[in-house]
Design a protein around this nucleic acid. Structure first.
Length: 445
RNA sequence: GGGGGUUUGCCCGAGUGGUUAAAGGGGGCGGACUGUAAAUCCGCUGGCUAUGCCUACACAGGUUCGAAUCCUGUAGCCCCCA
């Protein structure tokens, strides 16, 4: 361990090791030798279930990125074909089939996001020889006839082995059952691996631990069809200490797309990671070095209250996914929202800080005369679901307007509350914000 | 096809004909404590410009001064017999 590693590949395996990223692998020594013998290609499949990836896909993207940085060629495979079928692994019931058009939109969206993680054209210090590839299995599956596929591929799949796979066994006797289509999923993914080994010399497939069955199916198929020795590597699943999948909140998944999950919300998600989970996230998802990792672990131990590790994690992730800009705005917003008083912040700054926060336009006449009733305003802003809900929250003293608590449910918002600005900040509880914006067409007097 | 059971609020689940907007739990939302954590504790959790009104216990009717609770029919789920 004290010996400095002699090549990027040695670094790579050591790194995967200390980060705990190797859950299972086939023929470890063989794999190490293969990697040491020269540049390799490694592939991971991505399910195009939406136009954006979410936090759940980060592990995989980072895995490819680590390989690329160590000099290997990453292949991101989007499952245009397999996505039409649906992987039964780890799913309790059959998924709805996506339309071809939807799938194409998803593939496009996901592909664009991958550019933040992988270098596809060999710039940025790479010579180009290990530039990432983005492939879509629809391209080679689309023209493959059923009969031919059965003869070439199906022939090499013993039913006994297929029935033994966990993904099949767990479903076949369940209420949901398992359709023939889903059962066949494995063949498609296995064939992908063989295809990539033939066409791109790719001999390594990685994935989450739930992919083990599919990966080994590909390795078996490779041996039968081409005689080539292929390798598989799985990473642990990223779950929280209470066993749930990371990246999900009550409100749904955390997306990489800024339109779906704002940089601020994304940043906040990481800031809130539990103490028990935060170091694992750093190990799995970032490129923060061992030395700093140890330091952060130490600080979490000593002074958990500082949340140094969470902040560093949030910063690292946000910067990678949303860039300097996204990080800067998330941090600015955080600073005001959790620190300061909104009272004196000038209009333009408020607008910028709250760019992420949901807002609702109101017109000038809504605040003329009697003004806008607070109960109504809360519903307009989306902070409360009904009048009753709004009244309740006001009674609970959990509503504030420009950082001033509102306890009176008769409160009406008038021009005075805007204090010369065009924006008013409503808050419910500790960290739910919404804006009311005086729409520009209404001439402010 | 015959017989029996079941159906409650976001979810699970109690419910005696009469303060039952419906026990209890979960979830959610607030609050306290802390660290924008976890755990814990406390409050709230159908709608309504609201000391009141309306809608609710699968659906439709009925009995009753009064029904989630009793009766009839319809539908869904479950079990037994054929």
């Amino acid at each position: 361990m004290t010996q400095p590693a002699s090549s990027p590949t040695d670094h790579l395996l050591d790194e995967l090791q200390w980060r705990g990223l190797i859950h299972q692998s086939t023929d470890e020594t063989g794999l190490a030798e293969l990697l040491a013998s020269g540049q390799q290609s490694i592939y991971i499949g991505f399910d195009p279930t939406a136009t954006s990836l979410h936090v759940g896909g980060l592990m995989q993207l980072m895995m490819l990125r680590r390989f690329q940085r160590a000099g290997h060629r990453p292949i991101a495979l989007v499952g245009g074909a397999t996505g039409m079928i649906g992987d039964p692994s780890g799913k309790s019931e059959e998924r709805n089939l996506l339309s071809a058009e939807q799938l194409q939109r998803n593939v496009d969206g996901v592909a664009a996001q991958m550019r933040r993680f992988l270098d596809f054209d060999g710039e940025a210090g790479f010579t180009g020889s290990n530039g990432a590839l983005l492939l879509n299995n629809f391209d080679w599956m689309q023209g493959y006839s059923y009969l031919e596929f059965l003869r070439d591929v199906g022939k090499n799949f013993p039913i006994g082995a297929m029935m033994g796979k966990e993904s099949v066994r767990s479903r076949i006797n369940s209420d949901a059952g398992l359709s023939y289509t889903e059962f066949s999923y494995m063949l498609l993914q296995a064939y992908d691996f063989v295809h990539l080994s033939r066409e791109h010399g790719c001999r390594i497939q990685a994935g989450g631990s739930d992919q083990w069955g599919n990966i080994t199916a590909g390795i078996d198929l490779g041996r039968r069809m081409t005689g080539e020795q292929l390798f598989g590597l799985t990473a642990p699943l990223l779950t929280t200490s209470d066993g749930k999948k990371m990246g999900k909140t009550e409100r749904g998944a955390i997306w990489l797309d800024a339109e779906r999950t704002s940089p601020y919300a994304f940043y906040q998600y990481w800031v809130h990671v539990n103490d028990e989970d935060v170091m694992r996230c750093i190990a799995y998802l970032t490129e923060i070095e061992k030395a700093e990792y140890d330091e952060l672990a130490e600080r979490t131990e000593q002074a958990a209250g500082e949340r140094a590790a969470q902040k560093r994690l949030a910063q690292w992730m946000t910067e990678l996914v949303h860039g300097d800009e996204g990080l800067a705005s998330a941090e600015r917003a955080t600073k005001i929202l959790f620190g300061g008083d909104i009272g004196n912040t000038p209009d333009n700054e408020l607008q910028e800080i709250f760019a992420d926060v949901p807002s609702q336009d109101i017109t000038a006449d809504q605040i003329e005369g009697e003004g806008l009733w607070i109960i109504e305003a809360l519903q307009l802003a989306g902070l409360c679901s009904s009048g009753g809900d709004a009244r309740r929250s006001v009674k609970e003293n959990s509503i504030s307007l420009n950082s001033v608590r509102i306890g009176d449910e008769q409160k009406r918002i008038t021009r005075d509350d805007f204090a010369g600005r065009t924006v008013i900040v409503l808050r419910r509880g500790k960290r739910k914000y919404a804006l009311l914006k005086l729409s520009s067409d209404a001439s402010p007097k």
